[in-house]
Structure formats: C-alpha cells, structure tokens
Amino acid sequence: MSGAAFDNLKALVVEDNLHMRTLLRSLLTALGLKQVYEAGDGEAAFKILCSKLPDLILTDLTMKPVDGIAFTRRVRLANDSPNPYVPIIMVTGHTERRRVEAARDAGVTEFLAKPITAQGLFLRIAEIVERPRPYVRCAAYFGPDRRRRADESYLGPWRRKEDFEKKLEIK
C-alpha cells in the first residue's frame, strides 16, 4: 500500500453475512482505514453511527430486523441522526428494479453490485470523494441528488427552484 494509514477516517460496514462483512472490512483496511466498525443490521448500525460518527458507510440491503433501506432513511431523516449527509454505499446482490429504486429513494449515495471487485469498490469511493453530489431537500425526499446528469432536453415536471428559473429562461 502506498499511502500512510488514515488515523482520522472512520467507516462502518453494515452486513448480516459475516463472510461478506469481513471481506468488506479487509478491503477498507487495505486502503489504510484504521477505524472500521461493523454491524449486523440497521438497528445496531444506527447506534454505532451515533457513537462513532463514521465518515463512510457500506451497507447491505436485506437484513433483519432493520434492513438497509430503513437504515438509510433513518440516517437521512431522523431527528437523532448525527450526520444526515454521511455517504452511504449500498452493496447488494439485488437486481430487482423496485428494490434498487426504493434504496435510491431512501437516499443511498452509490450502489455496488455483488460480486464485489476491488475496482468497483474503489470507483464508488472515488466518486464520493472526488465528485460529491449536491443534496436535495423537499417534502418527499432528502438525500443525494438523484439526477446524475443535466438533461438539456428535460421538459418537466418542474419541481425545483432551479428548474423554475430555467423554465423562465427558456420562455
């Protein structure tokens, strides 16, 4: 490994499968992260979030009793959440569209599909570190901007202040 260890950066791995959890932990340790915390579900993870204040979270989707979607929603919206902006990478084997959309709408920052590759994980972390996305706040959603690309041909619906301004410019 080329860099020195990161004494100050903290990560949290939320995964009910012990094999996968230790694999993810090992990969983060290989990056030089010294403080990597683990939880087996969203309930335990939220407690660690409050006490350790991680800078990055990797979470599975399907867990019991609290899954990755409910955990993400709590991180983003709960009054007692210590950092609603913390980046969350969802590491999942789910390919069903409705589940992926539900996770996105809960406020997940990035997705990493299983099987895990070093390149895949590093790309997602690089995306968070190098190109942090704006957050969006409205009545129905709080989380990273779900519009990844500016679409010049987008004709509505206009739901944002900037959309409204753009619409006025077009007219």
């Binding site: 080329s2 860099g3 990056l31 902006y85 996305r133 409205c138 202040k161 900037e162």
Partner: peptide, 27 residues
C-alpha cells in the same frame, strides 16, 4: 420547491484526505 444543498455547505472529505485516498486507490 426542492432546495439544493451543494457540497461544502454540507461537510465533505477534507481535500487532504481526499487526495491521499485517491492516491492510495490509484496505486
């Protein structure tokens, strides 16, 4: 209407940490 909160207004990785992380990941 939805409000946008740009990076920097909310806390992000410090530029020193970001640079070091990128260097490690590119190695």
């Amino acid at each position: 209407l939805a409000a946008k909160i740009p990076p920097g207004v909310y806390p992000v990785f410090s530029s020193a940490d970001a640079m070091r992380l990128m260097r490690v990941m590119r190695d």
